[in-house]
Amino acid sequence: MVFVIDSNIEMANCVAKACGDCVVKIFHNAIEAMQALDNCLPSLIFMDIDLTGPNGFSFLNEVISYEDTSKVPAVIISDLDLSKFDLSMYGVVGFLNKDTMKPEDITEYVTKYTQ
C-alpha cells in the first residue's frame, strides 16, 4: 500500500494514478495520515511539505518517532528545492519537483519500494 499526502486534491489524484495497480490511500492533511498509520503501515509515502495544518516536517517528525513507522520510506513531492538537503534521517529516500516530474518518476519509486 502507498500513502499519498497532498492538500492539492488534483495533484494527489495524479500521483495516485501514476502508482498504477498498487493500493493507494490519499490524505489531504498530516493529521488524517497520522491517524491512518495507527491501523496500517504503507510500503511507501509520497508527500508534499506544504500541507494544510501541520506541515510535512511535523508529519515526518512524528513518523520517525515510532519504531514501526520509522522504517517507512518517504518521497517528498514539492515545488521547493530540497534536493540539496540530506533528509535521510527523516526516512526521506527521494525528492520529486512538482514543476518537472513525470508519472514515470513516481512509478520508479513504487516499483523499487513496493515489490
Binding site: 492539492n8 488534483e10 495533484m11 489524484n13 495524479c14 501514476a18 512538482k98 514543476d99 516530474m101
Partner: peptide, 14 residues
Amino acid sequence: LKSPLATLRQMALS
C-alpha cells in the same frame, strides 16, 4: 499561479 499550473501539467501527463 504556480500550483495550478503544475497541477494542470501533471493532469495532462496523466
